[in-house]
């Protein structure tokens, strides 16, 4: 039996570093002077009300939505300053699970998982099959899913295929937008276990948007609350003590109490 390595936090070199980020749609500000620093090996859970700008933050970090001002460094490179090489960096070292799966509808599950691989390496058919089988196994899907088309999958299966595709390149940063929404509680728990296991073995960094209180409690090393256009980052214990009404309600509401225990 092998043990996962201890989390190796290296404070001198952040994986994601966001400084004074401002994003907007027309005249609506979504983020105002938002700061966020994430180190290697962390699992950051982002929470916040619906429409508070979590998905937009994710798209901004990935280089899909240029900010109004501020800087975003991914693995030390400013992605909006040196777009070409930085975008390649994003392609190679990031795995992304979008909120709606974003699978290619005209490709089978197998081909969907192979898309990122084909971009970076020459893949021979039997080997490709092994990789697809491995990734499907990892996310807990039966192997016969490989030949199905996205329209033949359930919502939860779509999420898992999206995750399998995000894992295809063994990314060093994994971005997940609500990975457990739409999963049954058992699958959601299996997802938590899987994420912890993969994280322990592969040592990636995770940026995860989630509404799932269980996931936040059991998986995340730090939690970011997106509120009033800013991000409040802290450990579970730190956030619990914050005064803000929304954060207070979040950690002390009925659902939270059931999950986090009566103690608070």
């Amino acid at each position: 039996m092998m043990h996962p390595p201890a989390l190796s936090l290296s404070p001198e070199k952040p994986v994601i570093d966001i400084k004074n980020l401002v994003t907007n749609f027309g005249s609506t500000l979504i983020h105002e002077n938002l700061n966020l620093t994430i180190f290697k090996g962390e699992i950051i859970g982002i929470i916040g009300g619906s429409g508070s700008g979590k998905s937009v933050l994710l798209r901004t970090i990935l280089g899909l939505k240029p900010p109004q001002s501020g800087s975003i460094r991914l693995l030390g490179k400013d992605i909006y300053q040196a777009p070409e090489s930085a975008q390649e960096q994003v392609d190679k070292s990031c795995g992304v699970l979008f909120q709606n799966g974003a699978l290619y509808t005209s490709l089978t599950v197998r081909e969907n998982i192979l898309v990122p691989l084909k971009e970076v390496a020459q893949i021979y058919p039997p080997f490709a099959d092994s990789i697809v089988a491995l990734k499907l196994g990892m996310v807990g899907l039966p192997l016969d899913t490989a030949l199905k088309y996205p329209s033949e999958l359930s919502g939860g299966m779509t999420k898992r295929v999206g995750l399998a595709r995000a894992l295809a390149l063994d990314p060093s940063i994994l971005f997940l937008d609500e990975p457990t929404s739409g999963l049954d509680p058992i699958s959601a728990e299996a997802f938590d276990t899987l994420l912890k296991k993969l994280h322990a073995h592969l040592g990636f960094t995770v940026f995860m948007i989630t509404h799932d209180l269980d996931t936040i409690k059991s998986v995340c090393t730090r939690i970011g609350v997106l509120l009033h256009k800013k991000l409040f980052l802290g450990t579970f214990e730190e956030l619990k003590k914050m005064e803000d009404p929304w954060i207070h309600d979040y950690f002390h509401g009925n659902r939270a109490r059931k999950i986090f225990g009566k103690g608070f």
Partner: peptide, 19 residues
């Protein structure tokens, strides 16, 4: 450690698509 961990992880999973 790192190498063994990854091998250990991967060998739990199926490695070919039969169908």
């Amino acid at each position: 450690d790192e190498t063994l961990q990854i091998l250990n992880l991967v060998h739990h999973y199926p490695l070919n698509l039969e169908d």
